[in-house]
Design a protein around this nucleic acid. Sequence first.
DNA 1: CGATCCATTGAAAGATGTCAAGCGTAGTGG
DNA 2: CCACTACGCTTGACATCTTTCAATGGATCG
Lengths: 250, 250
Amino acid sequence: MENSQIIAQTSDKHCTHDIKVSCGSCRLNTICMPVSLHIDDIDQLNKIIQRGRPLHKGEYLYRAGDPFTAVYAIRSGAVKALTISDSGNEQVTGFYLPGEVVGLDGLANNTHTNSVIALETSSICEIPFNRLEEVSMQLPKLQRHFLQLMSREITQEQQIISLLGKSSAEARIASLLLSISTRNSSRSLSSTQFLLPMSRTDIGNYLGLTIETVSRTFARLQKARVISVDKKEVSINDIAGLQQLAKGAE
Amino acid sequence: MENSQIIAQTSDKHCTHDIKVSCGSCRLNTICMPVSLHIDDIDQLNKIIQRGRPLHKGEYLYRAGDPFTAVYAIRSGAVKALTISDSGNEQVTGFYLPGEVVGLDGLANNTHTNSVIALETSSICEIPFNRLEEVSMQLPKLQRHFLQLMSREITQEQQIISLLGKSSAEARIASLLLSISTRNSSRSLSSTQFLLPMSRTDIGNYLGLTIETVSRTFARLQKARVISVDKKEVSINDIAGLQQLAKGAE
DNA sequence: CGATCCATTGAAAGATGTCAAGCGTAGTGG
DNA sequence: CCACTACGCTTGACATCTTTCAATGGATCG
């Protein structure tokens, strides 16, 4: 596919950070709100969604402990979610790409348990939860959709557990790359070439590896001609091989 | 606390497997349904819940791929949830104790992604989901409660991710023990003495360790006088020390 | 231009996994 | 009632992988 475009995918320069896009015309709405809503319903949903100014790299979307008031759809850019343990250590619990929804962690206790930080300049749709609940009452489809979003989050996390539980460093890295790859292709971006929005440190933290191991593993995968890496630029040369590695010690 | 009773907690002999208990009189209802429902509402909920025959050790509650029709509350006993990877390997994704709810994994695609198997003789309340949705429409509290149950599942899994991501074998085992301990005490059981319902193999699979490492770690913790272990019988001697270990490499 | 952050690489240490053997218990069948 | 087998658990020795410690280079930012 078209390289230059794709490589620019996570770059700020080409991102659309305009804050006026309505849900109906947002090209991500099939990911974020994959419910076939009636035009009037979309309109209703559209009304409650707030689009703030873009978040810059390192800025917080919300912090652990903040009261839960809304969920957030990523419109462009990328964010990471992390918890902070008693001992003060950060643990990255997930990366979220455009079209994906964060903030559901706050529902259990009306308080967010994670903090969410922008990995690059990102624009975010804020969906106030109490108003969403109201609208949902009238729109069972939307109601159902949110349950499904949560359920999907649960199954995704179970996959991560599966990953962290059993796998070698190679398998973990391979899985992460494949995850980003599939998520990209569901957004009609290249599944074989992309820019990693996160640092090696974030990757290591997320996958339970030191940054040295992450670095070495990238090097090894490159040496094996499965991928090519240059800093944050990744291309997957042998997707079947990568899948094999991801399964490997699964 | 009263030893003999507590040790018998997970033993079949003393469990109440009677299938007539109503939600209103179930001593677990504060865990399973911690919503302050009006007496009429409880009655309504009670009507849709089905109580089947007890599940014996090794029997399936449902299998991955089964259509999603219900969620299930554990009334006595214990179960494990597991996914099966492409390569055919099992991965235990969670243990569920009395009062806890399984089955929410099926919501995303109307199909269960996990299988759930009884670790010992267990009685289960089946809550048909479509009827639950109907009732929920009239009971916003119940609606909210289910969202919270799911959110709780999400945050719990994030804790596991946190655990698997960073920790040593000691920290993982310590965390599991502490988890069971707190869950026990919320059910008014001893937080310091209990029987593990699961095998070493299950523990290892869940925590991403080999059974040898599990065994050795138990031995080490015992040697350090933090716990005492004899087969499935565990008592925690130094809960602060255990918490320290759980944090340790977190 | 210096300071800082991020990434890479090497060497040594430490932890877990692998292989192998042995023990105790539960269940089976003679 | 007594083998006998199967299974779960434990323990040891060794191999393998990841971490740790340390040094270096490149990029970014003020």
